[in-house]
Design a protein around this nucleic acid. Sequence first.
DNA 1: GCTTGACCTGGAGGGAGCTCCAGGTCGTAT
DNA 2: ATACGACCTGGAGCTCCCTCCAGGTCAAGC
Lengths: 132, 132
Amino acid sequence: MSEISISEAARRTSLSVDTLRYYEKIKLMPRIARDPGGRRRYDERDLSQLRFIQRAQRCNFSLTEIGELLKLRRAGEAPRPQVQQLTEQKLKEIKIRLEDLGRLQHELELLLNLCRGTKKGCPIIERLNSTE
Amino acid sequence: MSEISISEAARRTSLSVDTLRYYEKIKLMPRIARDPGGRRRYDERDLSQLRFIQRAQRCNFSLTEIGELLKLRRAGEAPRPQVQQLTEQKLKEIKIRLEDLGRLQHELELLLNLCRGTKKGCPIIERLNSTE
DNA sequence: GCTTGACCTGGAGGGAGCTCCAGGTCGTAT
DNA sequence: ATACGACCTGGAGCTCCCTCCAGGTCAAGC
């Protein structure tokens, strides 16, 4: 099979073995399968879920929220309205973050252009410093 | 003038007065002007900076990083190369986060459409659960 | 002049998300 | 048989970012 040790799983996800154990401890991950000696064996599904967690986390979701997202992910065949609602709300949050990021990107690009092209005393800086 | 009390500043930024004092304590914000009685008086510049902090924070920047961004923001007239480099790096990080968010958005939209239109047993779920 | 409430300071407390440690087990290599 | 390293568990410790507290000051209303 394609089952791998915890250290290999850590390597492939760039998480630490401590973090992997921690995710299991707080039940963000399900109980990972063990070999006869009691060591964890991660399969492709586990890795996929870990990568989902990482993506969601980079997008500011808390581990608690990610737990909910994972429930959605798993509960696909049981499309309850409450589950839909949660997803919709998360999507709204994502959109807001996308907008924030866009704004921040714009501000920094402005600043960078300024830094590149100017000697001193540019009106844009004043705008950055004093406007909403 | 348009100088306002800490509680008013808190109201306008949706931060708590404790957080406002905390930002000053850790020098993320400059020392805020005081009235003769020693109370803080926030002006438009302060509010602008606070909103910048909030935007950056929603985009996953740590307060330490935001401190650096604010230094850039202030140091506009002194475009040192090291300062440029930092901005460029932050922009790269922002782009990665934008991509992550886009991916996550896509995944959740997929899931949502699925939830809306299906009875049970959809191949997309399998894909979500077992693919990269 | 006294009360009330918003404000001040320094410092302790708290939740999230790890990270580390002690003390023990398993399996391979010598 | 033993030594070694990767693994196990439960629990303590740490950083970040607040949040709360105690004890005190200031300004306005009664």
